[in-house]
Design a protein around this nucleic acid. Structure first.
Lengths: 261, 261
DNA sequence: CGACATGTTGAAGCGGTTCAAGTAGGGTGG
DNA sequence: CCACCCTACTTGAACCGCTTCAACATGTCG
């Protein structure tokens, strides 16, 4: 594979303006000049292969990363040796902002498939956001969204039975794929059953049984990693047990529709 | 109680400079003039009584709040009517930053005891932080810390048995009280058994049984809301099962000691 | 002082884990 | 190209941690 080592210049030169994920990644109104400034600090890294680390817990905090393609999991390594997966990151999402306060990464980030990212040196990003109000607000807003997402996940873990947790996971994925212009009813899981179980706080065997059960109930069609959602409404209902929080997440994406009883 | 309506001028006039919580709340190096600017946007509200809301889910997002004294719980109201408590806030901590992205509160905040807060109008705070680099970094850092805390809580909920969860909760509280200059071995819980159970994702009865059990094991002395920690090490050990994350939280407060296997 | 909320304790039931065995892919070397 | 191996996944059955239900005790507040 020595041929692959040749850097594809067209990819390296691609800029935020022409990136299809730009709307997701940096959707604040930036002036022409601002965009150039942003572009100037972004480094494009070569793809991270499946199983490779983007960063490890303990690494000094240098950059945050925007996912361009592929996906990664963020996880904490606990003392007993087993990891706890915290989140799954899809294209258009930023990772690593949780390291600001400690100046070193606490989570590790590992690619679930061949994945490419934009690297944004954090110091420069923070400096730039002092001069671009929209960027500052966007960073704060992104972190706020991450907190909200975590709140939802805590609610799921604390209150929901396993079937609703898996339903939540699938509905959430479905929505995120829709936002990215992919099918919301048919997609491939990049996480293994083991990872899904870990993320949702249950045993692998339970995940397996639930997929079988959902299929028997006609909610899904599952074949290994390929998922086809047949009955979105029922899954949504199970998911809704979780909270208004998700409803509001959706609302804030679409526009400002009503929520909260 | 008409007398209580008389505003105590000395309290209203108290400024950040003279606030004992300043180090916790806004510990970045601010110049004299900057402090004045910050002071100028802060409103002091009259105390929030036990059971009163500081804000409710659905309220427009106007301000964030710094706790001066007392404590509050933040919780999500779910569709099934039951709430899910997300966090407990002690003096020196900021609340409400999770509402930035949606421009309305998703969590409600309720005082657990008579509580006083400083209100910081968010728009002004954000505008100010464009002109004070330290303030921008501090806001981002605070949110990063909140994300980290949530990650820890997710880990607790996903992986730990109930006894370790309660141990984690107590050790965490103990540390936070220590940071605030209070005893780390003896304190009063502001949360009810119900609230603790809800926060930790278990049944009230389980909390009750665990307190009894911990007392029988000589780990604690419990009398209603009053807690005396007798064997910090054993609790710490149970807590450690959770993650390095907390160790790192401590480390980042003290200095930059080692972490990560 | 009585009423209601909050907390405690016991016993039964069950949701989900754990253990164990087996199956199916996917990649590798012969 | 096939045989092999290893990992990922599936399925069944026993077990157990925690919840639920029920009754009671203790505080607290009007």
């Amino acid at each position: 594979m020595p041929k692959d080592r040749i850097v594809r210049l067209d990819e390296v030169r691609s800029r935020c303006q022409s990136c299809s994920l730009f709307e997701l990644c940096m959707p604040m109104g930036l002036a022409e000049g601002d965009l150039d400034k942003l572009d100037s600090i972004i480094k494009r890294r070569r793809p991270v292969e499946k199983g490779e680390y983007l960063y490890r817990a303990g690494d000094p905090f240098i950059s945050v990363y925007a996912v361009r393609s592929g996906s990664l999991k963020a996880f904490i390594s606990t003392r007993d040796g087993r990891d706890q997966i915290i989140s799954l990151h899809l294209p258009g999402e930023l990772m690593g902002l949780d390291a600001i306060s400690s100046n070193q990464h606490i989570c590790s980030a590992m690619a679930l498939e061949t994945t490419s990212v934009c690297e944004l040196p954090y110091e420069q990003l923070e400096a730039l956001s002092l001069r671009i109000p929209g960027l500052q607000h966007h960073l704060l807003s992104l972190m706020s969204e991450e907190i909200r997402h975590n709140q939802c996940h805590m609610t799921i873990l604390a209150r929901l039975p396993v079937d609703s947790r898996l339903a939540s996971f699938l509905i959430n994925l479905s929505g995120r794929y829709r936002t990215r212009g992919f099918s919301s009813t048919e997609f491939n899981l990049s996480m293994s059953r083991n990872d899904i179980a870990n993320l949702l706080g249950m045993a692998v065997e339970t995940v397996s049984r639930l997929f079988t059960q959902f299929q028997e109930q006609g909610l899904l069609q599952v074949e290994r990693k390929h998922i086809k959602i047949l009955n979105h409404d029922t899954l949504q209902t199970m998911h809704n047990r979780c909270s208004d929080l998700i409803a509001s997440e959706e609302a804030s994406k679409d526009s400002s529709s009503s929520s909260t009883s």
